Simulated scan of single mutants.
Amino acid sequence: MAVDRLVARREVPLREKTLWRVLYETCARAEEILGVNIENLDLAARRCPVKAKGARSKARRRGQAREDFVLETVYWDADTARLLPRLIKGRTRGPVFVTHRRPGPGKVVSPRDVCPDTGLARLSYGQARALLDEHTAVRGTGTGWDLHEYRHSGLTALGVQGASLLMLMAKSRHKKPENVRRYFKPSPEAISELTGLLVPGGSSR
């Protein structure tokens, strides 16, 4: 509910609304989402590939770019599907999330990190973190939410609603069960129903 209220605030710009909703629905790391380009989006299927944390390089053939990595897929739902087309309207290439200013004359930026249509640079993690803090801080700068909380909140919500540990691992792309177990919080009703399976014929006895 807190995420919904924040995204619904009128003074929050479209870029921030979209980023926060994407982070919550994909349960992805902020660095992964900020690194996505428009040409990577599959808007119809509500998914896109990301370069995950610790991504290993693909086996390179002669002439293949060093930047090739094994990618992983993240998925979003209806609210993100509604916001993304509005955010990238008129753009077909380059970073999904960009700054409102072009890079200064003395700043060297990789061509991949600049929108070829507008010249705007990719939004950095530091900038995104500062923007979130600006809209959520209640006791001064640095007291607001952290970008990683969207990943935690999304996984916790799924765990509370009964998602299995294996499904949470598939969603979050964690490799070790112990790293995602804290989000696995089955309801008392779910545990009671599971307990009934121990009795022949279910819980009717």
Rank of each mutant, 00 (worst) to 15 (best):
E149T: 11
A121W: 02
L120P: 06
D146R: 13
C115I: 09
L131M: 01
L123C: 11
A157R: 10
E149F: 10
Y125H: 10
G119F: 08
L158P: 01
G159M: 09
G159H: 07
G144S: 02
A157D: 11
C115P: 02
A128E: 01
D133P: 07
A130S: 12
G144E: 04
P116N: 03
E134A: 13
R112L: 13
H148S: 15
H135D: 13
V114H: 08
Q161S: 06
E149I: 02
A137P: 02
T141P: 12
T143C: 07
L120H: 12
R151K: 11
G119D: 05
Y150G: 09
R112E: 14
S153N: 12
Q161P: 00
L123A: 12
R129C: 04
C115Y: 06
G144M: 07
G142P: 11
L158H: 04
R139A: 15
L132Q: 05
G142Y: 06
W145F: 08
L155N: 07
L147P: 07
H148Q: 15
S124A: 11
G154S: 11
T143R: 06
R151F: 02
L132P: 01
Y150F: 15
T156F: 07
A121E: 09
V160A: 13
G140Y: 00
Y150R: 14
E149H: 13
R129N: 11
Q127D: 07
T118H: 03
R122G: 13
L158C: 06
